[in-house]
Design a protein around this nucleic acid. Structure first.
Lengths: 107, 107
DNA sequence: CCAATGTATGTCAAATATGGCATAGAAAGG
DNA sequence: CCTTTCTATGCCATATTTGACATACATTGG
C-alpha cells in the first residue's frame, strides 16, 4: 500500500472520530479508521464484560498487555487483522464483528 | 500472534469453506478463514461489476496484479487488512464490508 | 493453431506489524 | 500517603506482509 506511511502520520493524534475536517483524510481513510475504531471499541467492551484484564487477554491470545492496550486504543500500529483475531479468540463470531463494523465508531 | 505459523500451514490447500473436518481447525480459525473468504469474494465481485481487470485494480490501490489475484483467492499470505483497504478503494463502505462479513463465504 | 489479454503461482528484498520488555500514568483500596 | 492492580506509551529485534517481478496457466477472438 503506497499511502500507508502518509496515513500513519495523519492518524497520529486524532483519537476520536469526526476527524475528517482537521487533517485531509480521504473518505476511504475515514472509513478505514472508523472501522478500526469500531472494532477496537468492541474488543474493549467484550473484554470488560467478560471481566478480563488486558494481561489476561494477552495470555489468551498469545500477545502482550501493551499490544492489547494498543488494540483497544485503535493505535495505527495495530492491524485490523489482529483486532479481529482477538475478538474471535474472545468468543465473538462473524456476526458480532459485522455488527460492529457496520455501526458508527462512537456508537 | 503465536498461532500464525500453524494457521498458515493448516490453511494451505483447502480452498473452499467447509474445511473444518479435514484439518483440525478451531472454531475461531474457521470463523477467521470464512471471514477472509467472504471479503475476498466481495472484492472479486466488486471489481468485476466495475469492469476492471486485476491489473487496473492493482494500479488504483498501488499494488500489483499478483497480489490482487491473491487477495481474491483469499490466499493466506494476504491480510484481511489489505482486502478491506482494497474494497474501500473501490468505493465500498463499512456497510458493504459488514454485510459481506456477516454472510456465509459461499453466499 | 496462434496471438492477446487476463488471471494464477512462486520468489524475494523491503516495508510493516508483532511480541516482549521497561516504564509511566491512573484508579482503587487501605 | 502508599501499595497494588490495571492500563498507556515508547522502543526494539524478529516475524510477517507487501509490492514487484518472472513466468505459467486460461480464455477468447482471429
Amino acid at each position: 500500500m503506497k499511502s500507508t506511511k502518509r496515513k500513519r502520520l495523519e492518524a497520529e493524534g486524532w483519537k476520536v472520530g469526526s476527524a475528517q475536517d482537521f487533517l485531509s483524510l480521504t473518505d476511504e481513510e475515514v472509513e478505514y479508521i472508523e472501522l478500526q475504531l469500531s472494532l477496537a471499541a468492541l474488543l474493549a467492551k467484550r473484554r470488560k464484560s467478560l471481566g478480563y484484564t488486558q494481561t489476561e487477554v494477552a495470555n489468551i491470545i498469545g500477545s502482550s498487555q501493551s499490544r492489547v492496550a494498543k488494540m483497544e486504543a485503535g493505535d495505527p500500529s495495530v492491524s485490523v487483522d489482529l483486532i479481529i483475531r482477538a475478538l474471535l479468540a474472545l468468543g465473538a463470531n462473524r456476526k458480532h464483528v459485522a455488527r460492529a463494523i457496520g455501526a458508527s465508531p462512537s456508537a
